[in-house]
Design a protein around this nucleic acid. Sequence first.
DNA 1: TGCAAGCATATTGTATCCAATTGACGTTTT
DNA 2: AAAACGTCAATTGGATACAATATGCTTGCA
Lengths: 234, 234
Amino acid sequence: MGRHIMSEDKTTLTDAVHDLLKKAIIEQGLKPGMRLPEDTVGEQFGVSRTIVRHAFVRLEHEGLIATRRNRGAFVAEPTRDEAQHVFEVRRCLENDVIRLLCPRMPSGGYETLEAHVRQEETVRGKNGPVSIRLAGEFHMLLARLTGNPVLTRYVSEVVLRCSLIMSLYARTHSSECAVDEHSQIIEAIRAGDATRAIEIMEHHLGAVAERAELSGQTDSIQSILSHYGKELAQ
Amino acid sequence: MGRHIMSEDKTTLTDAVHDLLKKAIIEQGLKPGMRLPEDTVGEQFGVSRTIVRHAFVRLEHEGLIATRRNRGAFVAEPTRDEAQHVFEVRRCLENDVIRLLCPRMPSGGYETLEAHVRQEETVRGKNGPVSIRLAGEFHMLLARLTGNPVLTRYVSEVVLRCSLIMSLYARTHSSECAVDEHSQIIEAIRAGDATRAIEIMEHHLGAVAERAELSGQTDSIQSILSHYGKELAQ
DNA sequence: TGCAAGCATATTGTATCCAATTGACGTTTT
DNA sequence: AAAACGTCAATTGGATACAATATGCTTGCA
């Protein structure tokens, strides 16, 4: 049956539904490939299909769902190739963030970052989902400190898409980010050493991408079909 | 009255309306700040408000329009600060493109680029709108050659937003891009000299941004209100 | 005559309704 | 019995209808 969502009408219904679905996808409540019927979602949240549809448009633009004409919406299920593209852009953008940040870290920026890292350390190992979320937020925070909302949005988008990708391809979720590398990045930026910060960042993200098994294989027909080999093998 | 748009139903109505509005905004048929009533647009294209609304969601996400609750949609009118943020991201992304492209320009890439530059040269000076469009497309083409669709989309978005910004703030449109610098960038990439290519690109985009008068002033309250001073002055 | 409050209109936000496409199941035919 | 065809339920694409909010104008009052 469901009831209305918005506690206060500061935002529109579409925004509310969008945010909830986004959260559900990131937290893997909704798994990649899962179908999202419009009226099911609408009933669940107590809104009409119109609203759900609008939310879908935005989610698709953000790469979190895919829609197929007359077939509806599905939680995005990026191929390995697509995943690699997202990771590549993430590396580019995060390096850009470092370059911008080195000469103009705002006052209080380091304190904010260190506070965040401390928070990450306290939950390390314990609460899996929370530590994954915090790891992502570290990178978004870094972007936000550049003071550039356009860049911040792009970074957020790719970081979130990476979360989705990891949930698809990662062998182990192993907290997704090494917390101590976050500290090292902060220190390198504080020292004004962009080159070193980028080096660490590259290693940091490279480790994540590798864990996702994106490096070796490609999306060849063979690699796809290999998963189905057993059913045909006699 | 208006008739239906889609010649063939390869795409959805929303896509068609979205593309038309996008084109109209970029070509300055729709000028920044202009109001976009839903039913007016709908009647014009022969579709219902539902479709227009969906198109608006995407256009807003792309930063080409701004919507205010219960007040409708307007063609985006970025402030100088916002404009500067867009330009900054554009510089970052285009430099990233160069870094990626240097070690892996696809075969036939240089030929495609040179053909494009030749095309730019033939219309140089003559057809203003066309040469502006071609200049933008050079940068999108460069991005596309990386083979990364995610990066290509982001570059396209900021390039288009820059067009909008130039139409707002540029003193002279002066073709917006120096064609010979495009050639120089190609040559630097061909030589594998990313540093030099980035240097030229920075100068290239810096010149564009300067023409937009973004460098000096900021968006302080004073600078905004100064435009209205006369009306109150006795 | 100038300002404010209230009504009227226009436009947006949301829900419902109709048409068109899809996928599945059952039937028929070879 | 297997394959192809046709019908049917379910769901999406799109339009219309209704409710809520903002804007503009008129009118009343100081």
